[in-house]
Simulated assay, not measured.
Amino acid sequence: MYDLHDIVEMKKPHPCGTNRWEIVRMGMDIRIKCLGCGHLILLSRREFEKKMKKMLEKATPEDNTK
Rank of each mutant, 00 (worst) to 15 (best):
C37Q: 08
D6H: 04
H5E: 14
D29M: 14
M1T: 12
M26E: 10
K51G: 01
T65Y: 09
E9T: 09
I23G: 02
P13G: 08
F48G: 03
R46T: 04
K66Y: 06
K58S: 10
V8W: 00
V24P: 02
E49N: 14
M26K: 10
C37K: 01
H14G: 03
H14M: 03
T65N: 08
H5Q: 11
T18I: 07
S44D: 13
M55I: 15
K50G: 06
P13A: 08
M28A: 01
E47F: 08
R45F: 13
K12L: 06
L35C: 07
P15C: 12
P15N: 11
T60S: 05
K54M: 00
V8L: 03
T60K: 02
F48V: 07
R45G: 07
L40Q: 11
E49K: 14
I32H: 04
T60P: 02
E47C: 12
D6L: 08
I32G: 02
P61A: 12
K51D: 15
I23Q: 04
E62Y: 14
K33I: 07
K33C: 09
C34I: 05
C34N: 03
H14I: 09
Y2C: 00
I7A: 07
K12I: 11
L43K: 10
L4K: 10
R45C: 12
N64A: 10
C37A: 02
I23T: 05
K54D: 09
D6Y: 00
S44A: 11
E9Y: 00
T65L: 13
R45W: 13
M52V: 07
H5I: 01
K54L: 01
E9K: 07
G17P: 02
K53I: 06
L43T: 07
K51C: 12
L35R: 12
G17F: 03
D6M: 11
D63W: 09
I32Y: 06
G38M: 09
M26G: 10
K33V: 02
L40S: 05
K66L: 11
S44R: 12
E49V: 13
E9L: 10
K58L: 09
I23S: 00
L35W: 01
K11C: 13
V24F: 02
G27V: 06
I32K: 01
K11Q: 12
R25D: 09
E62P: 04
E47D: 15
K58F: 05
A59Q: 05
R25C: 02
T60E: 07
D63T: 04
M55G: 04
L42P: 06
G36V: 03
E49C: 05
T60N: 05
